[in-house]
Design a protein around this nucleic acid. Structure first.
Length: 926
DNA sequence: CTGCTAGCATA
DNA sequence: GTATGCTAGCAGA
C-alpha cells in the first residue's frame, strides 16, 4: 500500500466549523466563520497528510434509503441556521477552486459515499485517511483505513477505536445500535449507554449474541432490551454505513478522478477578497509580510475584541481569529509575572477566571491556584499552595490575593467563569468578595440548551470541538484520587489554564447564540446571572440547626424503631432486615402468601407505600412496616444526617443550590437537600422545629399561593379561572362548583377534595388513567370529570392543545419570560416516551414560569435588603417559598414588604399573592 | 469501590 | 400524572 486516499467528511465539518468559530463577517456583512474554518481545515489537512488522491464529500439533496426506512431519521435535527445556509455555496466554491475533487451524490449520504470509496480504495491497493468529526465512521476503520478529527487532533486506527469505545471497529455497528444515535434521532436500547453496551458486547461478543441472550439479562435494562428487540435490526440498518453505493455515474474512475487539480489562483484571489481573508490574500499575491507569519497572541486578541465590538462587518481580518489552536499557557511564579498579568486583566474587556481548590465543598475548600484568561489561547495559572516534595517556590496566597483583590472586588471589571458561584465561595473563604460577575458559561449553556449537559468537558466538545483535560486525568478517581495541591505545577498549569481558556472561548461561542433571542437574553441577564449572585449569599448565610433537639428525636425514633422491629419479627416468625425490599418481598409473598398488588419495573412484587396501605387493611405486618418505613426515613435522612452537615466554622448548615440541573428552570438543593424537609405528617414536621431563628429574631416564611394554577390561568386566559382568581375565592372550591354544577357555598368537602386532585392533575398533564388511580375511582368516571372540567374551562383545554402542538412543532415550550424548555422526546416513535414528553410539555411552562417568578423574587428581596441595609437574611428557597431570618427589630418592616415584593415581580392577568408566617422555628412559621 | 434499584421526602 | 435528591440494600467488581 503505497498511495494514500484522503477523504474529508465535509458535511460533518460544516456544523462544527460554524459553531466553533466566532461570528466572522465579510466586508459586506455576509457570515464567513464556517467558510474560514473549512478552508483552514483543508489547508492543514493537505499539509499534514500529503496524499496522492483526495476528495471532499458532502451530503446532497434528495431522500436517502434511511428516510424511506425510518421517517423520523434526523427528525430531531433543527433546521440549518440561516447564517450557515448562506455559507454552503461559498464553501463548495472554495473547495473547488482550491483544487479538491468534490463529491455530492443525490440520494446518498456523505457517510455512504465515504464508506464505498474506502472499501474501493483497498482494491486499488491504497490506504485511506478519513477526516471526520462523526464517530459513526469508526465502523470503517481497518488496517488500511484510519480516521482523524482535525478539530480535536484525534487519530483513530484500530487500537484507537478500541481505546476510545472499548470495542473493535467491527463491533462499532453493534455498539452504536445498542447505544443509539441522538444526533440522527436513531434510538438504541433505553438506558443503555457506552458502559452497558461494551459490557454486553464483551460478554456476548456480537449484537446477535446479545439479542440471543436477551432473555437472560436482568434488571430494567434487560427489560428495555427485550422491548427493543423488534427495533434493533432496523436501527442496525440505519447505523450501518453503506460500502456498496453505485458511484459509477459520478466519477470516471477511481483513482484518476480523485487526483488534486491545480488551484485556480485567480479565482482564489477573487474569493479571498470577496470574503475578507486578507492574510491568505497576501500569501497568494506575494506580499512579503504574509505567509511566514505565525498566528501569535496579538491578532487573536484583536479578533476577539473585534467580535465583541461587532466590528467584523467593517472588514477586520477574519483570519486572525482562533486558528491554529493556541495554548500559550504561563505559570506565574514571580512578582513580575503577576504584575504583568494584573495589567493585562485590568485592561481587558472580559476575563475568565477559575480557582483550583482542596475540596469540592465550597464552604470549606481552600484555594490552591487561580487561572486567568482574557484572550482565547493565552492563559495564566498562578499556583499558590501546591505542596509536594520538591514543589517550586510559589507566590504566597496572601500576597497574590492582596495584589488581585482590588481587581477581583471591582464590579466594573467584567468576569466570566464556569459556575462562578463556586469560585465566589472560594474567594469568600479567603475574605475576597468577588464582584463583576457578568457572565457564566454554566448558565449560558443552561439557558441555551436546558436539557443538555453543562459540564465544561462536554461543552468544549459540543461547542468548540475540543477535548479537554479532565479533572480525573489529573487527579485520578475513587480512593486513588489526589488533592489538587499534590499535582505537579506543570501539569496543573496545562489543566487549570486550559479551563480558563476554554471558558472564555465557550462564552464567545454561546453568548452570540443567546443574544439572537430577546427572551433568552432576558432570562440569562435579568434572571439567571443575578440569581447566581443571590444564591451564593443565601448559601453562605446558611441556616441554624438545633442539634440537641435532633439528637433527642433521633434517640426517640431509634427506640420506637427497635420496638417495631421486634413486633415485625414476631409477626413474621423470623428476623429479617426491614430496610430490604427484597427480604420483605420474600416474607410477604413467598412465606406469608400475601397477594401481589403491583410489580416494580424490574418485575419484583412491589412493597411500596400504596401496596402496604392496601395490605394493611387485611394483615397486621404491613401496618407495622409502614410505620417503620416512615420513622426510619426520618431518622436516617434527617435527624441523623442534618447534625452531621453543620459546618464547624459557622455552626450552620450550608446547602448548595444547583442552578443548572432541573430542566424546567427550578433550583435543586443538595448536601443537604433542604427542599424536601418533611411537612405532611405531624411526625415529620417535628424536623422543622430544629430549623431555628437566632436568639434575637424569628424565622419568616413567605410562599406564593397557588402559583402554578395562577400561571395556568394567565397563560390560558381562561375566563372562568381568571374570574375566580380575580375574585380572590378558594380556587378548589370554585373548580368544584363548576364541575359539579353547584353554588360555591354548596360545595361539599368531598367535592372540593376531588376538584383539588383534578387541579393538581392538570398541572401534571394528567390522563384519565392517572386521575382514576389517584381518586380510587373507575377510569370512565375519571374521564367524565375531565370532560366536565374542560367543558367549563375551555380556555384551559385550548391551552393544553396549543402547548402540545407547539412542543411538537418546535421541540420546545416557553415560560412567560421566554425561557425555553426543550423536549427531546416529543416526536419519539416510542409511544410511552412521547406521551411522557407531552405531559412534561404541559407541566413545563407552569413549573418553569413559577421558577422564573421566585427567582425574580429572590433578586428583588436581596436587592431591597441590601438597599435598606437590613440585618434580615434569606436563608432558604423551596420552589414557591422563601425563608428568612429576621431580627425582632425588623419584624414589622419585613412582614409588610416581603409579600409585596414577591407579589410585585410581574404583572400577570391574575394577582400574585404571597402568604407570610412567623415563628421561632420553621415549623411555627407556617 | 461503583453503579443500580426501590422507596420516599418536597414543590 | 410534573420536577428533584438521598438512603439503604445489593450485585458485580
Amino acid at each position: 500500500m503505497q498511495k494514500t486516499l484522503l477523504l474529508v467528511d465535509g458535511s460533518s465539518y460544516l456544523y462544527r466549523a460554524f459553531h466553533a468559530l466566532p461570528d466572522l463577517r465579510s466586508p459586506d456583512g455576509a457570515p464567513t466563520g464556517a467558510i474560514y474554518g473549512m478552508i483552514n481545515m483543508l489547508r492543514r489537512l493537505r499539509h499534514d497528510y500529503p496524499a496522492a488522491y483526495m476528495a471532499c464529500v458532502f451530503d446532497a439533496k434528495g431522500k436517502t434509503f434511511r428516510d424511506d426506512l425510518y421517517p423520523q431519521y434526523k427528525a430531531q435535527r433543527a433546521s440549518m441556521p440561516d447564517d450557515l445556509r448562506l455559507q454552503i455555496e461559498p464553501i463548495h466554491e472554495a473547495v473547488r477552486i482550491m483544487g479538491w475533487p468534490i463529491l455530492m451524490v443525490d440520494g446518498v449520504e456523505a457517510d455512504d459515499v465515504i464508506g464505498t470509496l474506502a472499501v474501493d480504495a483497498v482494491k486499488h491497493e491504497m490506504s485511506t485517511v478519513i477526516s471526520t468529526g462523526d464517530k459513526d465512521l469508526a465502523q470503517l476503520v481497518n488496517p488500511y483505513v484510519m480516521l482523524i478529527n482535525t478539530m480535536s487532533n484525534e487519530k483513530l486506527d484500530r487500537d484507537g477505536v478500541i481505546a476510545k469505545f472499548g470495542v473493535p471497529p467491527e463491533r462499532i455497528i453493534d455498539y452504536l445500535t445498542l447505544v443509539g444515535d441522538t444526533v440522527d434521532n436513531v434510538p438504541g436500547v433505553a438506558k443503555v449507554g457506552p458502559k452497558t453496551a461494551v459490557k454486553w458486547l464483551t460478554q456476548y461478543d456480537t449484537l446477535d449474541g446479545v439479542i440471543a441472550n436477551a432473555a437472560n439479562i436482568g434488571g430494567a435494562v434487560g427489560e428495555n432490551l427485550r422491548q427493543a428487540l423488534d427495533w434493533l435490526p432496523q436501527a442496525r440498518t440505519l447505523i450501518t454505513v453503506k460500502t456498496d453505493c453505485d458511484l459509477a455515474s459520478h466519477m470516471a474512475s477511481i483513482p484518476e478522478s480523485l487526483t488534486q487539480k491545480p488551484e485556480d489562483q485567480a479565482a482564489m484571489v477573487d474569493f479571498f477578497t470577496r470574503y475578507g481573508f486578507k492574510s491568505w490574500l497576501r500569501e497568494l499575491t506575494g506580499n512579503p509580510t504574509a505567509g511566514a507569519r505565525p498566528l501569535p497572541a496579538a491578532p487573536a486578541h484583536a479578533a476577539t475584541a473585534a467580535v465583541q465590538a461587532g466590528l467584523f462587518e467593517h472588514g477586520a481580518d477574519a483570519q486572525a481569529a482562533t486558528h491554529p489552536p493556541l495554548r500559550q499557557y504561563e505559570t506565574v511564579l514571580t512578582e513580575a509575572q503577576l504584575s504583568a498579568w494584573l495589567a493585562r486583566i485590568d485592561q481587558a474587556d472580559l476575563t475568565s477566571i477559575d480557582t483550583e481548590t482542596t475540596a469540592l465543598d465550597p464552604m470549606t475548600a481552600q484555594m490552591v491556584g487561580i487561572s486567568l484568561c482574557s484572550e482565547p489561547g493565552v492563559a495564566a495559572y498562578i499556583p499558590l499552595a501546591h505542596r509536594y516534595q520538591d514543589a517550586p517556590p510559589q507566590l504566597s496566597r496572601d500576597r497574590v490575593l492582596t495584589v488581585l483583590k482590588p481587581w477581583l472586588e471591582d464590579p466594573t471589571k467584567a468576569k466570566v467563569g464556569q459556575n462562578l458561584k463556586y469560585d465566589a465561595h472560594i474567594f469568600a473563604n479567603h475574605d475576597v468578595a468577588l464582584r463583576g460577575i457578568v457572565h457564566d458559561t454554566l448558565l449560558e449553556s443552561y439557558v441555551f440548551e436546558s436539557h443538555k449537559s453543562h459540564n465544561m468537558d462536554s461543552l468544549a466538545l459540543r461547542h468548540l470541538g475540543l477535548k479537554t483535560i479532565t479533572f480525573e486525568e489529573v487527579c485520578g478517581k475513587g480512593a486513588g484520587q489526589i488533592c489538587f495541591d499534590q499535582v505537579a505545577i506543570e501539569r496543573a498549569t496545562e489543566y487549570a489554564a486550559e479551563d480558563a481558556d476554554i471558558t472564555l472561548q465557550l462564552h464567545y461561542a454561546m453568548w452570540p447564540e443567546i443574544r439572537k433571542d430577546a427572551g433568552l437574553t432576558h432570562v440569562y441577564e435579568k434572571i439567571e446571572i443575578p440569581t447566581s449572585v443571590v444564591l451564593q449569599k443565601i448559601e453562605r448565610n446558611g441556616v441554624s440547626i438545633d442539634r440537641a433537639l435532633l439528637s433527642v428525636q433521633s434517640h426517640e425514633l431509634g427506640t420506637r424503631l427497635l420496638a417495631l422491629e421486634q413486633q415485625a419479627y414476631t409477626l413474621a416468625e423470623q428476623p429479617f432486615n426491614l430496610n430490604s425490599p427484597k427480604q420483605i418481598g420474600e416474607i410477604f409473598f413467598d412465606r406469608l402468601k400475601l397477594p401481589v398488588i403491583k410489580k416494580t419495573p424490574s418485575g419484583a412484587p412491589s412493597t411500596d407505600e400504596d401496596v402496604l396501605q392496601k395490605l394493611a387493611e387485611d394483615y397486621p405486618l404491613p401496618k407495622i412496616l409502614l410505620e417503620y418505613r416512615g420513622l426510619s426515613k426520618l431518622k436516617s435522612t434527617y435527624t441523623d444526617k442534618l447534625p452531621k452537615m453543620v459546618n464547624p466554622a459557622t455552626g450552620r448548615v450550608h446547602t448548595n443550590y444547583a442552578q443548572a440541573v432541573a430542566v424546567t428552570g427550578r433550583l435543586s438543593s443538595n448536601e443537604p437537600n433542604l427542599q424536601n424537609i418533611p411537612i405532611r405528617t405531624a411526625e415529620g414536621r417535628r424536623i422543622r422545629e430544629a430549623f431555628i431563628a437566632p436568639p434575637d429574631g424569628v424565622i419568616m416564611s413567605a410562599d406564593y399561593s397557588q402559583i402554578e394554577l395562577r400561571i395556568m390561568a394567565h397563560i390560558s386566559g381562561d375566563a372562568n379561572m381568571l374570574r375566580a382568581f380575580a375574585d380572590g375565592i378558594d380556587i378548589h372550591r370554585a373548580t368544584a362548583a363548576e364541575i359539579f354544577g353547584v353554588a360555591a357555598s354548596d360545595v361539599s368537602s368531598e367535592q372540593r377534595r376531588y376538584a383539588k386532585v383534578i387541579n393538581f392533575g392538570l398541572i401534571y398533564g394528567m390522563s384519565a388513567f392517572g386521575l382514576a388511580g389517584n381518586l380510587g375511582i373507575e377510569r370512565a368516571a375519571a374521564q367524565n370529570y375531565i370532560d366536565k372540567y374542560f367543558a367549563r374551562f375551555s380556555g384551559v383545554a385550548q391551552y393544553m392543545a396549543d402547548t402540545r402542538a407547539q412542543a411538537k412543532a418546535r421541540g420546545y415550550v416557553e415560560t412567560v419570560f421566554g425561557r425555553r424548555l426543550w423536549l427531546p422526546e416529543i416526536n419519539s416513535p416510542n409511544g410511552p416516551r412521547r406521551q411522557g414528553a407531552e405531559r412534561a410539555a404541559i407541566n413545563a411552562p407552569m413549573q418553569g414560569t413559577a421558577a422564573d417568578l421566585i427567582k425574580l423574587s429572590m433578586i428583588a428581596v436581596q436587592d431591597w435588603l441590601e438597599r435598606e441595609n437590613l440585618q434580615s437574611k434569606m436563608i432558604m428557597q423551596v420552589h414557591d417559598e422563601l425563608v428568612l431570618q429576621v431580627p425582632e427589630s425588623e419584624l414589622a418592616l419585613v412582614t409588610e414588604n416581603l409579600p409585596a415584593l414577591m407579589a410585585g415581580v410581574a404583572q400577570l392577568k391574575v394577582p400574585l399573592t404571597a402568604e407570610v408566617g412567623i415563628g421561632k422555628n420553621w415549623d411555627e412559621a407556617h
